[in-house]
């Protein structure tokens, strides 16, 4: 029997896959009775992580599969993203200095920064030539309907 608290998606390394996935996450979020700001954050985190992988992880022109699993249990979301691209550990990325004025602010690095701010933990491991990114978030009851 399929578990209600866990969902699994596979996308190809094409940026056009992202709005399709976003729509599925929207449906999943509704099924889990999440309010729209929480669904938006999940979609944002996925878009940032997946677009990074799609743009930078693959040095060939082949089609690659990227796996996304999401589980939701006891107010804890766990998102796991697996790809077979080149090793990349986002937890070691330099964080942008957001206190700088506009003229001095570097324009890059915001995507991974947003992931780390929205999620509670960001973990990375490399196993069997796969990058595995594990993101967790504890959410409040008020972020769901009928709380």
């Amino acid at each position: 029997m399929k578990n209600d608290y866990k969902e699994h998606f596979i996308i190809e390394n094409r940026i056009e896959e992202l709005p399709v996935l976003s729509e599925k996450i929207e449906q999943l979020g509704k099924k889990w009775e999440f309010l729209s700001p929480l669904i938006m954050k999940i979609n944002l985190v996925l878009e940032e992580a997946l677009s990074n992988i799609i743009y930078y992880a693959f040095k060939d022109k082949e089609i690659h599969k990227i796996e996304v699993s999401i589980s939701n249990k006891a107010n804890k979301l766990i998102i796991e993203i697996t790809d077979d691209g080149i090793p990349f550990d986002p937890t070691t990325s330099e964080q942008p200095d957001i206190s700088l004025p506009a003229s001095e602010r570097p324009v890059g690095g915001l995507g991974i920064f947003l992931i780390s701010k929205i999620m509670d933990t960001v973990g990375y491991s490399r196993k069997n030539n796969l990058n595995i990114l594990t993101l967790t978030k504890f959410y409040e009851n008020i972020e769901r309907k009928n709380n």
């Binding site: 944002l44 878009e47 940032e48 506009a102 602010r105 915001l110 995507g111 920064f113 947003l114």
Partner: peptide
């Protein structure tokens, strides 16, 4: 109702 880092970068 939605903005990602690419959009934020355009504004910056």
């Amino acid at each position: 109702n939605y903005i990602c880092s690419s959009g934020l970068r355009v504004f910056l």
